[in-house]
């Protein structure tokens, strides 16, 4: 780059930097709004002008995790005194609500759906990445006729619209009793992620020099030993990146979960919208549920930042 910049170039640069900042703030605004709404008292969530400065509280999260019924009036003093600390948080927010019944705390549907999301996403990720790594190694190291066609076939399964696959799968699952089960979703997500995992891992394994294994073979390793002891450790970063991508895809998936589950195995994405219902929804609770759901993905995105390009292009573009 030329060391000398003209004055107009410098001015242009400054304008570009300002524009980038504005765009970044605009893109982050919805995420900021979700986060801030998750910590607002209910009466500040839907004000005009919007409330930006407020004392954050965690009552939306209490309401998210527990079940309660609406009261017509503020709680009686003795009810208030008898209530556990987190219930008082809800009362203090000015809400005329109380737990349903005096007995044990009743959990809402959310923790259960969150667990379902975790179970389904983690299991399907483990399956898709392990199968995908083996297959990618097979494609990477051994040439065969029709390889391009097989790889296209594998990728094309990823492109199938979920609703198209869901119609026959729904009927088949109904016949064998897999509807509304964890395994039903796990199988679907594994199939969906498998193609992605093969393509991405093939790119990572292609980059490991063949000579490493060949040296090991000369040293008396069998090919399987060479794969497990030489290739897998070398591919660790790629495996981790692929796993995170698969996890995020399964974690975020909506259409299959909507169609294939309704209660027992329902994951968070179809559950959170179903809570809006009719009438005035409590947006602080929805924001709290959304915030907790997005948090792992935000952390993973940060960890993945150097591999995003590669993952998003199915391993075709490396940086």
């Amino acid at each position: 780059m030329a060391a000398v910049q003209t004055r107009s170039e410098r001015a242009l640069n400054r304008v570009a930097i300002a524009a980038v900042l504005v765009i970044t703030l605009l893109f982050l605004a919805p995420i900021y709004w979700i986060t801030s709404t998750a910590f607002k008292p209910r009466n500040l969530a839907t004000t005009i002008p919007p409330t930006v400065i407020f004392e954050p509280e965690i009552s939306p999260f209490v309401k998210l995790f527990t079940k309660r019924s609406q009261l017509r009036a503020a709680p009686e003093p003795e009810d208030y005194a008898a209530a556990p600390w987190w219930e008082r948080l809800v009362f203090d927010g000015g809400e005329k609500v109380v737990r349903s019944g005096r007995g044990d705390v009743q959990l809402s549907g959310y923790p259960n759906r969150f667990m379902n999301s975790l179970i389904v996403a983690i299991t399907s990720t483990v399956l898709a990445v392990s199968m995908g790594t083996f297959t990618a190694y097979g494609f990477s190291r051994f040439k065969m006729k029709g390889e391009a066609d097989l790889l296209f076939f594998i990728l094309s399964t990823r492109m199938l619209p979920p609703v198209v696959v869901a119609i026959p799968m729904f009927l088949m699952y109904r016949a064998v009793g897999l509807n509304d089960t964890h395994w039903g979703l796990i199988i679907l997500y594994t199939a969906f992620n498998l193609s992605f995992s093969v393509w991405l891992m093939k790119g990572f394994i292609d980059e490991i020099p063949k000579e490493y294994e060949e040296a090991a073979l000369v040293d008396g390793y069998t090919r399987l030993e060479a794969f497990f002891k030489i290739v897998l450790p070398e591919a660790a970063t790629g495996i981790a990146a692929t796993a995170v991508f698969c996890f995020i895809t399964a974690w975020n998936e909506y259409a299959f979960a909507l169609i294939m589950t309704n209660r027992r195995a329902q994951t968070a994405p179809p559950f959170i919208p179903s809570q809006v219902g009719s009438g005035l929804p409590d947006w602080t609770v929805i924001a709290a549920g959304t915030f907790l759901f997005l948090l792992p993905v935000a952390i993973f995105t940060f960890l993945l930042r150097n591999h995003l390009l590669r993952g998003m292009s199915f391993g075709a573009i490396r940086k």
Partner: peptide, 23 residues
């Protein structure tokens, strides 16, 4: 900045989409 800008595409369409109802 690039990482922050990439955040929206990693999020769940269904869950974040729902919140756009409020926006």
């Amino acid at each position: 900045i690039t990482t922050l800008l990439l955040l929206p595409m990693m999020l769940s369409m269904a869950v974040v989409g729902l919140f756009w109802k409020l926006l």
